[in-house]
Computed example of a mutant assay.
Amino acid sequence: MSLPQPVPPSWKDLGKSSNDLLSKDYHYHGTSLEVKTQTPSNVSFKVQGTRDSKSAIAGDIEGKWTDKVHGLTLTQTWTTANVLRNQVELDNIIAKGLKLDLATSLAPEKGAKTAVVNTVYKQSGLHTRATLDVLRGPIFTADAVLGRDGFLVGAEAAYNVTGGNITRYAAALGYNAPEYAVTIHGLSNFKAFSASYYHRVSRDVEAGAKAVYDTNATHGGVALEVGTKTYLDSSAFVKAKINNSGVIALGYTQSLRPGVKASFGLALDTQKLNDPSPAGPSHKVGVQFVFDS
């Protein structure tokens, strides 16, 4: 008898190890601050804000209440763009492995509204999701990932209910092992293709790469990006990446004390090294501070 298969990653998390390695912890888009607090009554608050190079400030405040016993989570967010977001999540209430949530948003000044119903169902070797965008289309989106012995097969499709036609479809193949992962995507109705690779070289070193080919891209060719992450010690790590456009990005994250983290980022366009300002249009610097109590 074969052993039970683990729950595979969701469609959006296929290739996550490589994507996180190449995109997270590069804080070179201005200055940002994030503060997280937790109350004894299972209510958490998160306040975050970012100031970019144009001196524009964007932020939001989020409150979340969780009832783990009954699988209920309520989240409310208010942004500096005066957008109100609400989300209600029900996890493992109707059936084991089934999660339901309703996410809404309202922009009072513009009168813009959204309402999206999401369902997630997870079992051994299976991870499916379905989304209904009630006010736009309506558009029904479904995806599924099957996994067995590390091999992964996934597909996604979007259906316009009013128009009665499929508006988007995609598929993916992958393999996940304890030390490495490989994923190939066919996206945008198979007009764009991506391949990603992640490798945990050792306990302290990770490496990854991603290649994207888009038939609609004006520049043509393949966009390639490679990166690495090195842990200096238990409280600090350094990340570096470079793409075939000649842009180098560096990131350094340091845990200053329990609950306090600082991250610094730098991006340099090697084809425009003569730009006078390190924070000009070709080069970017930034910093982020996170307080988590």
Rank of each mutant, 00 (worst) to 15 (best):
P6V: 00
V7T: 09
V7P: 03
P8L: 10
S10L: 05
S10N: 04
W11R: 06
K12R: 09
D13G: 07
L14G: 06
S18A: 15
N19K: 14
L21A: 02
L22M: 03
G30Q: 03
T31K: 14
T31D: 11
T37D: 07
F45I: 01
F45G: 13
K46E: 08
V47L: 13
G49V: 12
T50D: 09
S55V: 06
A56T: 11
A56Y: 00
I57L: 15
A58Y: 04
W65M: 06
D67N: 13
K68I: 03
L72G: 01
T73R: 15
L74R: 10
T75M: 14
T75S: 14
W78F: 07
Q87P: 03
Q87W: 03
V88C: 00
D91C: 13
A103R: 12
T104N: 10
A107C: 06
V117D: 05
S124L: 03
G125V: 00
T128R: 07
A130R: 02
L132R: 04
R136D: 10
A142H: 06
D143E: 08
V145A: 06
R148K: 13
G154Q: 04
G154L: 10
A155G: 14
G164Q: 04
N165R: 04
R168G: 09
Y169A: 04
A177Y: 01
E179I: 07
V182H: 05
K191A: 06
S194I: 12
S194C: 08
S194Q: 11
R203F: 00
D204Q: 11
V205D: 06
E206T: 14
A207R: 04
H219E: 15
H219N: 12
G220L: 09
G220V: 08
A223F: 13
L224V: 15
T228S: 13
Y231L: 06
L232I: 12
D233E: 01
K239V: 05
K241Q: 10
S245N: 15
I248S: 09
I248M: 13
G251T: 04
P258E: 02
G259H: 11
V260I: 10
S263K: 11
F264W: 01
L268D: 08
D269N: 01
D275E: 08
D275M: 02
P276L: 06
P278R: 00
H283I: 06
